[in-house]
Design a protein around this nucleic acid. Sequence first.
DNA 1: ACTGTTATTGACAACGATTATCAATAGCGT
DNA 2: ACGCTATTGATAATCGTTGTCAATAACAGT
Lengths: 131, 131
Amino acid sequence: MTNVPAKRNTRQKDAVRHALSEATGFVSAQQLHLVLRNHGSTIGLATVYRALADLAEAGEADSLQGASGESLYRACTTDHHHHLICRVCGLTLEIEAHRVETWADEVAAAHGFSSPSHTIDIFGVCAACRS
Amino acid sequence: MTNVPAKRNTRQKDAVRHALSEATGFVSAQQLHLVLRNHGSTIGLATVYRALADLAEAGEADSLQGASGESLYRACTTDHHHHLICRVCGLTLEIEAHRVETWADEVAAAHGFSSPSHTIDIFGVCAACRS
DNA sequence: ACTGTTATTGACAACGATTATCAATAGCGT
DNA sequence: ACGCTATTGATAATCGTTGTCAATAACAGT
């Protein structure tokens, strides 16, 4: 049997979870670390990275690659969805994409690919930033 | 007038262009640098990065973020398209996605977003790697 | 073809984001 | 409360990438 070490619930993982849910739009691990420190926490940077990786794996957070290559995270409802992101202010809307989900799976299947996954994100400039 | 310095054609930029066109699927700047050195070139790593950035900007190369966050490049025809990529062997197929292009633009417009762009990539395990 | 200007090169240092290390701490089952 | 061990936090190390700068080589003008 594959003996995976049991996960423990810690204050700092909760703190990250909470800080992430407070944040608007996507945040980097470093930003989150800074926020936590400013709120009086003594949490370490490495811990924030580990907590975010865990949350993402557990499906509690969405992750995507920012423009300059860093990983950005966002609290997330457990169902699958994609994002419409403002290039200027970072405003993020969750969009639902049945049509595209099935399209992606069809394309994969048509070419003999199995266990398909995909990355789909739409960027633009929101109405507010337009003016 | 915005006086942008003129670009020059150099052997090393051609070498990168050529090496990129020889490569199958996506390659990183470092891989390309290694290939060029193995072929006897004395090209510098920084030059490969610069050449790839230029090619990508000129529309001669596609770039996308690899699983571990690095930038990957691929020679590319000038028309817009997306990719179906094997997670195991890196086999890459260009796919055409009219349906999704228009969908993405519609979604952006519906939410008041202008100048829409998008990143759409499908990953899976190809038939060959399946066995 | 010769020359001068200056974009480009290549070796290396510097940088930012992330991950590994490791002793100290603190969850959780008993 | 006790003991085992997953987790923490400070720091060093790593990785991909970009900046620096003297030396080189493209191109325009002659």
